[in-house]
Design a protein around this nucleic acid. Sequence first.
DNA 1: CCGATCAGTTTGAAAAGCAAACCGACTCCC
DNA 2: GGGAGTCGGTTTGCTTTTCAAACTGATCGG
Lengths: 145, 145
Amino acid sequence: MKNQRPCSIAGTLAVIGEKYSVLVLREVFFGVRRFDAIARNLGAPRDVLAARLRHLVEAGVLERVPYQERPQRFEYRPTRAGRELRPVLLTLMAWGDRHISEHPPVVFEHDCGTDLKPVVVCKHCGGEATSRSLTPRFADPEWAA
Amino acid sequence: MKNQRPCSIAGTLAVIGEKYSVLVLREVFFGVRRFDAIARNLGAPRDVLAARLRHLVEAGVLERVPYQERPQRFEYRPTRAGRELRPVLLTLMAWGDRHISEHPPVVFEHDCGTDLKPVVVCKHCGGEATSRSLTPRFADPEWAA
DNA sequence: CCGATCAGTTTGAAAAGCAAACCGACTCCC
DNA sequence: GGGAGTCGGTTTGCTTTTCAAACTGATCGG
């Protein structure tokens, strides 16, 4: 990584782009918040998991909270910033449901009573954000495509 | 990676989860579709980029199309499945804009005339998909959290 | 012929990933 | 009290991946 285009996608990936990081968040959102349980559900090497958790805590996405003294034990909870990553996981899941497994392993029931089909829309007008409806504008014109 | 929870998030990450893959898609969406240009904008090692492009083509996200004969040269275009990954990039960008750079390096103008603020909503009711409004249901109860 | 362009491949060393074993501070149970 | 189990990691020794830089081969322009 040398001469990178300035970009919020790259910025977010610097936080959650390493292997397992997103899956850690998935488990945490499901309520699985302890080291052993996360390791089991991910099948990840424990040293790598330890490194990822440290990184996510430093980045302010998770917090490490003791859930008992004697012996002291910790669990990992999403912060506000962490919870705001849920849309990322939902769009990843939606693509996988559509293009990989036609029988989705997990479904989210939405308040409205249906199985959630997540769509990305413009907050202002509510219209779907499609390729054709979007025009990029670059802060630094050197990087205009 | 051993004993993984069956999951569409993991499935999608198997396609675009390696380092640089998402950034390749970003460039392709911006219209940067040739090997040298992508390599330049990413600052990625050329051998890694070659491997990623191969993988994305095999996965059906990009296609490798000749844009000239003599000497034969290729460019990479998003397929339909590839274009459907745009929502993933938009949510990644939105999080970075909010939590990393308060001055976004790129803004998308939406048809409606405003700068796009992407939100994930329920396709059926249009309501925002928040933690509290969602209840997971597991196809295989062994993995219920 | 000389230099430049482009899409990769090759090379050798450094970094990250991996599975399995280990550790320390406990608790539980006989 | 002793042995087994739990839990949140760290250590070890090996394999795989990444990296930057150099190189290749086809072709064009002067």
